[in-house]
Computed example of a mutant assay.
Amino acid sequence: MPNLYGRNMSRHEIETASGSLGHAAGVRLMSLSDGLERGIRLLEFRSGTGLRFTVLIDRAMDIADCEYRGFGIGWHSPAGFRHPGLHEYEGEGGLGWLRSFSGLMVTCGLDHILFMYDAAAENYVYGPRETVRQSIHGRVGTIPAELTGYGERWDGDRCVLWAEGVVTQGTVFGEHLKLHRRIEIDVGSNDIRLHDRVVNRGFYRTPHMFCYHVNVGHPVLEEGARYLAPISDVVWAAHADSYHAQNVGYQTMPKPQFGFHEQVWQHELAAEPSGEVPVALVNDRLGLGFMVTTRKDQFPCQYEWQNLQAGQYAVGIEPSTNHVLGQEAARERDELIWLEHGDAREYDTVFSVLPDAAAIAREEARIGAIAVQPTEAYPGLSGNFVPLGTRP
């Protein structure tokens, strides 16, 4: 039963109060019409709690805006929500992706994540293609989806807002991968449920790598905001050779910095007995936080991204199928996932707004019960990249 305006309401009560659920909650199709965003279709979700978020249909059905009762959560970069038709995948030596990088969630994959890499292409049995040139974080995030449905579904007194779509990444003499995505939220809830299924519809043996770049911005991110995670080991930091130079540790965030170079950490995270791994960024001053809950068997690796430069201020929570070492290392370590025709991988993730101090305290206790994260700002780096096992 949805909790709206401070009380639980049945479907009958909601329908007596208004001729349409849309007065409180709903999902509707829109399009952007100006500047770099012109022509992008999006879905706007409102859950009735004050949570509003948008889904960019024409950019892999990623989540763009996200706000709670007027407080911003999702990151807006200077790149904006750029129309995919303007994207140059191999531009700027493979860094062109950064000109389309913005929003709460950006999907990375489907066959490559992390930095640029020229992958051997003998699996595609085409002589002229000796390698597949991979730009940073792969192609999928700027591919339009086929919207297969959206709307509201009542089940007794429960109402679910939902959307589904299919993103196709394919080429001749190469990969033919499909991302089937479903996004749901219950009316009266602050939990966004994401279910992804990646399947090889082609007949070549094809690599698969997958990552969510979940980006939290101001005001959840501000001086004093805290990163909470069940960290059992701090494995790696991109800035290890200058660990203290920027005076920014992994857990407590500073105000926007000038001349800041991004910092990336890989943490080994423990899971609950259910297999769930919760990670959050919380703002104690506001009594507001944002949490990402994944499954260890689906995303065995996690990164923390700190882009604390003024004007680009963001912290990223990044669940991943692979270590931060990249595709070359995944191949060498026999940890790259290979999909034959019809093979699929599934991913179940929940994005949760933590609306008050009590919710923050509850989830902090939950995370601490899984593993007690380091108290020091600069934990020792183990370099222990846990073997992921042979990946079929």
Rank of each mutant, 00 (worst) to 15 (best):
L4T: 03
R7G: 11
R7P: 10
N8I: 11
S10F: 02
E13S: 09
E15V: 03
A24Q: 12
G26C: 05
V27G: 05
M30A: 15
G35F: 01
E37K: 04
E37M: 09
G39L: 02
R41N: 14
S47Y: 08
G48C: 07
L51E: 01
V55T: 06
V55N: 03
A60L: 08
A60I: 08
A60Y: 08
R69M: 07
G72R: 00
I73C: 00
H76I: 12
G80N: 01
F81E: 05
H83M: 07
H87I: 15
E88T: 14
E88W: 14
Y89K: 12
G91P: 06
S100N: 14
G103H: 01
L104A: 00
M105F: 08
C108F: 08
H112Q: 11
M116I: 14
D118V: 07
D118G: 13
A120D: 11
A121Q: 02
E122V: 12
N123Q: 12
V125G: 10
P128N: 07
P128L: 09
R129E: 10
V140M: 09
D155A: 11
R158Y: 10
V160D: 07
W162Q: 03
W162E: 09
T168Q: 13
Q169Y: 15
V172H: 15
G174C: 06
H180A: 13
H180V: 13
H180N: 13
E184N: 12
D186K: 05
R197A: 10
V199S: 12
Y204K: 11
P207A: 01
H208A: 11
M209F: 04
M209T: 06
F210A: 04
C211A: 13
C211R: 10
L221T: 02
E222H: 03
A229C: 00
P230T: 00
I231V: 14
S232C: 15
D233C: 08
V234H: 04
A237F: 09
Y243T: 02
Q246N: 04
M253E: 06
F258P: 14
F260E: 02
W265T: 03
E268N: 12
V277Q: 04
V277A: 01
V282W: 00
R285Y: 09
G287T: 05
V292M: 05
V292C: 05
K296N: 07
D297H: 11
F299C: 03
F299L: 03
P300V: 02
L308F: 00
T321A: 00
L325D: 09
G326E: 05
R331F: 11
L336S: 02
I337V: 11
W338M: 08
G342T: 07
E346L: 05
Y347D: 09
D348T: 05
T349V: 13
V353Q: 00
L354W: 04
A359K: 00
E364N: 06
I367N: 00
I367H: 00
A369W: 01
A371E: 03
A371M: 04
V372Y: 05
T375C: 08
E376R: 03
A377N: 06
G383H: 04
F385L: 06
F385A: 03
V386I: 10
